[in-house]
């Protein structure tokens, strides 16, 4: 589903954030992306979101090289993804419902269908009762769950998260990770960047470790490390 083939990324300043990354994720797999601060985790996710383009190498999504996708096709590509950020990027001047509805509005869903799917997504993160509230009225953990609902409302095949638990205490973090596992259970491919080592070592999932822009561990096809 996700395949990095010798991908490098050099930023305009000249700094090489990723060098020769090889990484393969099967459809329906869940992997954690770890590494020290500045290792290149966010850069790798940005390449997947086409927020940045690889300097060299090929990035295949579902067998298709997207690294040279024209700007015109970016929106429809992004609609296959769900993305979650550490700072959740919710719009504070809209209700929870309207925040979650955004990916559907952008894709041209009817009002009725939008309402149905938004409620289903909010239900799956346990926030159906808060649909009419402003995100400002919610706790940090709840805000992040709204962010996750928005990321999955359009049923993407790939879910990307950049430090989704960075601002949360351990208990809430575990809760959020459980949520991601439930989306994997229904077939979504999930890639989560985090440096919450303690937490992810308790969960039995593949760990990809980046070091200075290269994959130090876990890049190949999934093989349980017994």
């Amino acid at each position: 589903m996700i395949h990095f083939d010798n991908v490098s990324k050099r930023y305009p300043g000249g700094y090489e954030a990723l060098s020769g990354v090889n990484l393969h994720l099967d459809a329906g797999e869940l992997a954690f992306l770890t590494g020290h601060s500045g290792a290149g985790k966010s850069t790798l996710l940005k390449l997947l979101m086409l927020l940045e383009r690889p300097t060299s190498g090929a990035l295949l999504i579902n067998g298709k090289n997207v690294s040279r996708l024209s700007n015109f096709r970016i929106p429809s590509y992004r609609r296959q993804l769900g993305v979650v950020f550490q700072d959740h990027q919710l719009l504070m001047d809209r209700t929870v419902f309207d925040n979650v509805a955004l990916p559907l509005q952008v894709a041209g869903f009817s009002r009725k269908e939008t309402g149905r799917r938004v409620r289903a997504a909010l239900d799956s993160v346990g926030l159906l009762s808060k649909e009419k509230q402003s995100p400002l009225a919610l706790s940090g953990g709840e805000q992040q769950r709204v962010g996750i609902a928005r990321a999955v409302v359009h049923k993407p095949r790939i879910l990307l998260a950049d430090e989704p638990t960075g601002n949360l205490d351990p208990e809430l973090s575990a809760e959020i990770m459980n949520l991601f596992q439930r989306f994997q259970d229904v077939g979504v491919t999930v890639l989560i960047a985090t440096h919450d080592i303690d937490l992810i070592h308790r969960l039995n999932h593949r760990i990809v470790r980046l070091d200075q822009g290269s994959v130090a561990e876990g890049g190949g096809a999934y093989a349980p490390a017994f």
Partner: peptide, 9 residues
Amino acid sequence: IVVKLVGGT
């Protein structure tokens, strides 16, 4: 920014 991230044209 958010609209673009979720695939707004």
